[in-house]
Nucleic acid binder design. Structure first.
Lengths: 349, 349
DNA sequence: CTACATATGCTCGCATTGAGCATTAAATGG
DNA sequence: CCATTTAATGCTCAATGCGAGCATATGTAG
């Protein structure tokens, strides 16, 4: 099928370009710095929160805990990240996963010999509310503070119809810049799919797509800060969520989307729970992440039936009604099923 | 809920450490180079293949097309990757997605002031067989050449029982090094879940987990090359799949796992198909990626029912049997459903 | 013409899942 | 102490999804 006759060599100089053996290369590759960034998520009183650090002074922006990767001090990205977070916030992270690497952190920043180019590696960390007391510095803010249009807990957020959709429709109808690369999907359709208009369903996982669309359309402050053309074309627009430093809001958007997706097929929801909990508390936590749309009895059936939890034998009495059984995460489920998670269906409202 | 009283400032020096304003930082951060690597996948005669470049000389290893990211020349990682691939192989990539960033490319390489530390950003690219003619350099190899234990097309691969499982069992029972970090899952259980023994089901998406396990156990050549302790503990072991340069086999493992996962919820399978195809050809392509386990009639029902394809009106006659209708990908499905894909169930054998 | 290989249509039964009804058990206010 | 309120929990039912198999259609190879 794949004959060896097909094996052709690539020219020597091409090989050397990508596998530098000497130091000549060093001059060619300008300084690059790798920024490690953590979106540390917890659920506090049914509110999904993220740990941010704040600068003082004017125009203060929130940042995610972060620091540069140093190959001399850090054996791995994740190790470096844990060190930075511990130093900056006093938190020892538990569950951590890599999200994405962004090559264009200060997107429109011009290349510059003085300042190193910084790329961002984003991480998601999940922690339970008990851990929160350990946070020495930094503050926990609702992630909906940065993404109000993602908050469907009281139904479809008003900001969508009031501010976002009309401007996006206008933007979609603007004559396109020729510079824009040929997109497989037209602006109109992207708006429709991302923001659930004209009959499309809201997909709670498309957090990054929505943010990127708003950025492209120049409707988030970061776009203006970065000097995006589309942003300058608008008359003053209302603030859509709080800005963050650098590309940190983009990283947070990735984190939210990943969290929402992941709890459906991996038992990561329990990283956000205390060791013992009632099924309704578990449901409230899932709903804080995804939006409230779960049928209580079916949720119970789902979670128990999947073997995700087991009763501790204890009861919780101060529930406001009948006492509830306490449960704990059943770790053995990891050994039984390939993809255990809270398999709630996508595409609800 | 999240009161502002919670807002505490982080110490100034901590901020400056992670948001360097001046150039003093430059000395602190050693040179880091970012390697962009592409696993370019196609399906050729029902064989999943990946594009590799080969060096000549002794101990030749296959590499993925790759090159360093240069912020001066490349606006984004993906742009840089496309440039390198085009230069090295003559291929203009279509579908591309980022896989993962590895901070420890030459895992056990010691930090060194002379050579820059290289981190790898891996990408997955999918292309259809028609594009293959355009490949000027490099060769297409079955991805099972590098991962023979992933090839379930003729049933459970013999290499599992013959070579892999016995050694993994032995490794799992070895006294653990104290240096090993406390793992949430014991070696025994990791082996069991990854390689589907003792009743566990084979999860075709866990390609990376399996490779990492073999690496940790010292059973792949890369582990020996990198001087891993576990590798040196073995008497000579059989070669388990072909080695690749640097961490390229790890990137390819990630690519295979991602491809297998992704075709189930995004219509990326069509990136691997010619513009027109029969349903059986489509099924064969899915099976080349996942393993052969699909019920023909149900596959047809699934694909047609999901609106993933539409008939072209043409027929294909040289099928070996009754002529088959030709279909094409129905792009509108992207505008109709949030997660269209070939939703075959996980956990089959 | 016949055997064969594939394409395609259809049915049946089980498992999953959405939705709702009914009952139980504590806390609370009179 | 009782009635009311608020949850927790048990159960049913219908719609749908999905695995499996039967049956038939229509080419090609010999």
């Amino acid at each position: 099928m794949v004959s060896d006759a097909n094996v052709r060599r690539i020219p020597r100089e091409s090989l050397e370009r990508h596998h530098p053996k000497g130091t000549a290369m060093r001059q060619e590759a300008p300084a690059v710095e790798i920024g490690l960034n953590a979106a540390i998520v917890a659920v506090l009183d049914n509110e999904p929160v993220v740990l941010v650090v704040r600068e003082d002074g004017n125009g203060a922006q929130d940042s995610l805990p972060s620091g540069p990767f140093s190959p001399l001090k850090h054996r791995t990205f994740e190790g470096g990240l844990r060190t930075w977070v511990s130093d900056q916030t006093g938190i020892e992270l538990g569950y951590v996963e890599q999200l994405y690497s962004f090559g264009d952190r200060g997107r429109h920043a011009q290349p510059d010999d003085e300042m190193p180019h910084v790329v961002s590696v984003g991480y998601l960390a999940l922690t339970d509310a008990g851990q929160i007391e350990d946070s020495q510095r930094g503050s926990w803010r609702s992630w909906y503070h940065y993404f109000p249009w993602e908050d469907w807990r009281k139904g479809r957020p008003a900001i969508l119809e009031a501010e976002i959709i009309p401007r996006l429709r206008e933007w979609a109808e603007r004559p396109q810049q020729t510079a824009e690369p040929a997109r497989p999907i037209a602006r109109q359709d992207r708006v429709r799919m991302c923001f659930a208009i004209d009959g499309a369903a809201w997909d709670e996982e498309k957090v990054l797509d929505r943010y990127e669309l708003l950025y492209e359309a120049g409707l988030v402050e970061e776009a203006r800060r970065d000097g995006r053309e589309a942003a300058l074309a608008w008359a003053p627009t209302p603030r859509l969520g709080a800005m963050m430093r650098f590309d940190h809001r983009r990283i947070l958007a990735t984190a939210i989307g990943r969290t929402r997706a992941k709890i459906k097929y991996r038992p990561v929801i329990f990283e956000l729970m205390p060791p013992e909990f009632t099924l309704f508390e578990l449901q409230r936590t899932v709903e804080a992440i995804l939006g409230p749309h779960l049928h209580k009895q079916n949720f119970r059936r789902l979670v128990e039936g999947a073997g995700l939890v087991e009763p501790t034998g204890e009861m919780k009495t101060r529930t406001g009604g009948r006492p509830a059984k306490l449960y704990r995460f059943r770790k053995e489920v990891l050994l039984e099923r390939p993809a255990p998670g809270v398999r709630v269906k996508p595409g609800r409202v």
